[in-house]
């Protein structure tokens, strides 16, 4: 009896590490991949797909740096993808020789985050900005001014993310400071702005955003375009602010972490996700824009019903900061919350 117990316990402990044939371990943004598409893939290729989620690029980077994560696919944003390529954390799987490469819309190919497009195939892109609950706040939203220097209705009703990444970027857009600046004086201005905003901020959190905003616990939340579109088209009273200073852009790509146990299945999955049919279904689930060629007549979120996905304000993509610039970002964040 005891022997069986021990054996079972051991088996359970190491079950996640099992590298049996026909497995695929995804480590992707929480709730970002359509379960229906995953199921279709699992059936078609007879592969057992395990999905794990993260809510920040930092979590992903830390996990990959710690080594042997056991994951086969991850979806970092562009500025983190660059770091992962430079640090040798992801495989060169010859992405530009895959069929998937042909399906990428031309303007998203061979960008600075993966010039030769050897390590990644994009899966989604979008913007980050602030979203208001329109039953709580009826004022203007065409500038970051109302978010970073609020008065009246938004005072004490603002929520920021718990990570500095895109929030600092938005503050830099508002102040007209370049991303990843190494100029201390400029970053001091960012800190001053955020410090002045702090009394109006109710919470710094990246979890549970939809329910916090819908319940009216806060009236404005830093968020992503697709999440807002998804909630709004389901009836939540949300509006994404189209800020004239611009919005922070991001693009997530599928990569294969170094030493992935099921590399072949990972490539099959990337090819599968990039077929127009599946890419369309994935976009209809995720509600973020797709950088792939789609089946246009099946796209749910079009310009008429989801103008958030087709912004007319400038979009500035987050960049990969030098360590010195990154330290300034961390310093601003630490002093803000010290």
């Amino acid at each position: 009896m005891k022997k069986y117990l021990t054996a079972t316990t051991l088996a359970l402990c190491f079950a996640t590490a099992a590298q049996a044939e026909g497995q695929l371990n995804l480590y992707v943004w929480t709730d970002s991949i359509s379960p229906a598409v995953i199921e279709k893939f699992a059936k078609e290729y007879d592969v057992k797909v395990n999905v794990d989620g993260y809510t920040s690029n930092e979590d992903l980077l830390t996990k990959l740096q710690a080594g042997s994560s056991g994951y086969d696919i991850a979806t970092p944003s562009q500025h983190f993808l660059r770091v992962m390529i430079d640090e040798g954390l992801v495989e060169n799987y010859g992405a530009n020789k895959l069929k998937a490469y042909e399906n990428i819309e031309a303007r998203w190919r061979n960008q600075w985050w993966d010039e030769k497009q050897e390590h990644s195939i994009p899966i989604a892109y979008g913007t980050a900005g602030f979203v208001v609950n329109t039953t709580q706040y009826k004022g203007p939203t065409d500038s970051f001014k109302y978010f970073f220097e609020p008065d009246g209705e938004l005072k004490g009703k603002i929520a920021m993310l718990s990570y500095p990444d895109e929030v600092i970027g938005a503050a830099q857009l508002y102040l007209g400071i370049p991303f990843c600046t190494e100029d201390q004086a400029e970053m001091k201005k960012v800190l001053d702005l955020l410090m002045a905003q702090k009394p109006s901020v109710a919470v710094y959190s990246s979890d549970n955003i939809a329910s916090r905003l819908a319940s009216g616990e806060v009236a404005a939340h830093f968020w992503w375009d697709g999440e807002e579109v998804k909630a709004r088209t389901k009836g939540s009273p949300f509006a994404l602010a189209m800020t004239k200073e611009g919005m922070v852009g991001w693009l997530d790509s599928m990569v294969i972490p170094k030493g992935a146990p099921n590399r072949d299945n990972a490539i099959k999955f990337i090819e599968f996700m990039s077929q127009p049919e599946n890419a369309t279904e994935q976009m209809n689930f995720y509600a973020h824009s797709s950088p792939m060629k789609l089946v246009q007549e099946k796209v749910v979120y079009k310009k008429e019903n989801a103008p958030e996905l087709y912004p007319e304000v400038p979009i500035v993509f987050s960049r990969t900061c030098s360590p010195a610039a990154q330290d300034l970002v961390t310093r601003v964040w630490t002093q803000l919350l010290q």
Binding site: E58, T62, Y163, P323, D327, V329, T330, W333, T334
Partner: peptide, 11 residues
């Protein structure tokens, strides 16, 4: 603070 250093702070 520790979490920030291992994550966003990259230190």
């Amino acid at each position: 603070l520790i979490q920030l250093q291992f994550g966003g702070g990259r230190n």
